[in-house]
């Protein structure tokens, strides 16, 4: 009922994997894909945070009835294995399923989700002094320039 097709290509020491998940059943399914590779798993990121559904071991996604979804990831490992470990539909959990652990825990609200939705606070790389790039905890004061660039509307209320 659930088809998982994986295609990989390797460039410059990085393996790029494309996974197509097809749900041929007549109801919406939640699918858990476990990625095993001898190396780090690099999930797609949104604002520096792994995209919704991704964690260190794989991804959990929902596929509409009769629908197809694609996901991709990268890894420095030369071989990857993607396995469907759990599928959950309206009728409950299919036999091989255990817990389809998502990336969120019960401790709402989810901090990753906040970062994904609101975006980074960090100053752009171009604003970071080059000569200090390697020096952790340098003491160069930055308030003046940072304030000038903040543009947070301070002047409006004056």
């Amino acid at each position: 009922m659930i088809d998982v097709r994986v295609r990989t290509s390797r460039r410059d020491g990085v393996t790029f994997a494309t996974v197509v998940v097809e749900n041929r059943s007549s109801e919406r399914r939640r699918v858990r894909l476990a990625v095993s590779c001898e190396g780090a798993l690099w999930p797609p990121r949104r604002r520096g945070v792994p995209a919704a559904g991704w964690d260190a071991e794989g991804v959990t996604l929902t596929v509409a009835a009769g629908g197809v979804r694609g996901v991709g990831f990268a890894t420095p490992a030369s071989t990857v294995d993607v396995e469907r470990v759990a599928t959950q539909g309206r009728g409950g959990v299919e036999p091989e399923a255990t817990t389809a652990a998502g990336s969120t825990d019960a401790n709402a609200p989810d901090v990753d989700g906040v970062v994904r939705a609101l975006g980074s606070f960090a100053p752009p790389l171009a604003a970071t002094p080059r000569e200090n790039a390697g020096a952790e905890g340098s003491d160069e004061p930055v308030e003046q320039g940072a304030n000038a660039a903040s543009g947070d509307g301070d002047g409006w209320g004056a």
């Binding site: 960090a122 200090n132 003491d139």
Partner: peptide, 10 residues
């Protein structure tokens, strides 16, 4: 901290 590099590393 008050450095931009520190902010980026956080």
């Amino acid at each position: 901290g008050r450095t931009l590099a520190g902010a980026r590393a956080s």
